[in-house]
Design a protein around this nucleic acid. Structure first.
Length: 155
DNA sequence: GCCAACGTTGGC
DNA sequence: GCCAACGTTGGC
């Protein structure tokens, strides 16, 4: 399936890394607790879209691989888990507040495309990830940016 | 560990 | 609805 749109999701590798995704093959990308990121997960992503995996709070930080978006959005099950961080008292089974998507492992880059390298690439100057103050954990990536980073990974 | 930047909460 | 206080993210 040809990817229609391109995305990037952040994860702290000490919590869940690209290697965890490779081991699992597929995972539910849940625990996103920002409304803008939620809308991208729920309404923006479509099956077959390509998604970078980005390691944050890590050594090194950067883009480490690619996943594929699977299926439709599902209510994030962690919002119903009373007594946990993810619990969302406003959520009901009929009206979920937070949403998640299944992501399937596609590949891991031979080397992390580091944040500093992204910042040094003039073609990526407008990339949302690099915008001042950006903290989104799920965000769109332009097609040309996606291909540019894939090329950087091969270099 | 520090801290800049941003998001959320809650008093009014 | 405003906005100060607080919490979180995430690079360094």
């Amino acid at each position: 399936m040809m990817a229609e749109k391109y995305w990037l999701v952040k994860t702290e590798p000490s919590v869940y890394s690209i290697d965890d995704l490779r081991r699992d093959g597929e995972t539910l990308w849940d625990r996103v607790r920002n409304h803008q990121a939620k809308l991208f997960l729920r309404d923006g992503m479509q099956p077959g879209d390509a998604c970078f995996i980005y390691h944050s709070n890590a050594h090194p930080t950067g883009v480490v691989g690619v996943a594929v978006v699977m299926g439709v959005a599902v209510a994030d099950p962690t919002q119903f888990e009373k007594g946990t961080d993810g619990f969302e008292p406003r959520a009901t089974r009929e009206a979920a507040v937070w949403w998640a998507r299944r992501l399937k492992w596609k590949g891991r880059f031979a080397a992390c495309v580091e944040l500093a390298a992204l910042r040094n690439e003039p073609k990526l100057a407008g990339m949302r990830l690099l915008a001042r103050g950006n903290r989104l954990s799920v965000m769109p990536v332009e097609k040309f940016e996606f291909h540019c980073i894939e090329q950087m990974a091969k270099a």
